[in-house]
Simulated assay, not measured.
Amino acid sequence: MPTALITGATAGIGAEFARQLAARGHDLIAVARDVDRLKAHEAALSARYGVDVEVLPADLSDSEQRRSVEDVLRTRSVDVLVNNAGFGLNGRFADTAVDRLQSQLDVNVASVLRLTHAALPGMVERGSGSVVNVSSVAGFFPGTGAAYGATKAWVTAFTEGMSASLTGTGVRMLALCPGFTRTEFHARSGDDTAGIPDALWLDAERVVRDCLHDLERGKTISIPGKRWQAIVGVGRLLPPPVLRTLTGKLAARRNRT
C-alpha cells in the first residue's frame, strides 16, 4: 500500500486529507500535537478503511520534535507528503508577541522547507511521489494579515519553483490555496468571520477533493471554487500598487473593528 504523511492531521483540511487518502487505500502517518485526538482519529480511519494509521505526535514549531518527523521522511518510503500544519494570528503585527510570530514562521515556512527537503531524495530516487503544500489565497493579497499572508506567499512561490525543478523526475508538487474554509482555523486565530458572505465559504471535503483532482491532472496550484479562482484572477491583473492600496484599506478597517 502507498503511504501518506500528513501534518496537522487531526482537524479541518488535514483530517479530510487523511480521510480521503485512506479511502483511496493509503496507509497514513498522522502528525499533530494533540495525542488524544490523533489516537481517536487513527482508530476511526483504521476501522472504516482497513488501513494502517501510525500516530506521530510532534509540535512543528519545536526544532527537536520537527526533526523526528524529518527522520521518518528520510528513512521511510513515503509516497505522499501533505504539509498542512499551519496557523494564523489575529491583531496588529507590532502588538503580537515576537515569539508567537516566530512560531508561526517555524510552522508555516520552516516546516514546509525542512519536511520537503527530507522527503524529496527518496521520492526522486524511486521516480514517483507527491508533495502537497497547503497555502492560502491570502498569499496573493498583501495586507490581509501581513505576516500570515507572507508565509503563504512563500509557500506558493516555493512550490511553483520546486515543481519546475522536479520536471522529469516523476515527483509532483502542488500548492493548495483555499479561501475561507469551514474548519477550526479561524476560531483558533481569533478571526471575526461574521461578515463573510456564505457564498465565499468552502467546506474541507470540497477543498481536498478538488486538490487531489488537480494533483492528478498535474497542476501546480489548486484554488478550489470558481469564485475564489475569479477573485485571485482579478487580483493578479491589478497593478501591485493598486492591490497593496486596496488590501491595506481592508486590513486597516479590520484592525479598527
Score class of each variant (00 low, 15 high):
A199H: 01
P178S: 02
S163F: 04
A157H: 10
G161V: 07
L176G: 08
P197F: 10
T220N: 07
G195N: 09
G195T: 07
P197N: 06
T193I: 15
L215H: 10
L202I: 09
L166R: 04
A157K: 06
T220V: 15
T183Q: 05
C211N: 06
G190R: 08
A204G: 10
D198M: 07
L176S: 07
V155T: 01
E216G: 13
I196V: 15
S163C: 09
L202G: 06
E205A: 15
L202N: 09
H213V: 11
S163E: 06
C177S: 08
A175E: 04
A147P: 02
C211K: 07
R217A: 15
R182C: 02
G170H: 07
G218F: 02
T169Y: 04
D192M: 05
A146G: 08
S165G: 00
T181C: 10
R217D: 09
A164E: 13
R172A: 14
G161K: 03
R182H: 11
A204I: 14
C177A: 10
D214L: 02
M162C: 13
F180T: 04
P178H: 04
L215A: 12
G170C: 06
S189H: 01
H213E: 05
G168A: 12
F158K: 06
L200K: 06
D192Y: 05
E205L: 03
L166I: 08
W201L: 11
P197C: 04
T156D: 00
K152I: 11
P197V: 09
T156A: 02
S165R: 14
G149L: 04
R188H: 12
K152H: 09
C211A: 14
A194Y: 00
M173V: 13
G190E: 09
E216W: 01
A150E: 12
G218T: 10
K152T: 08
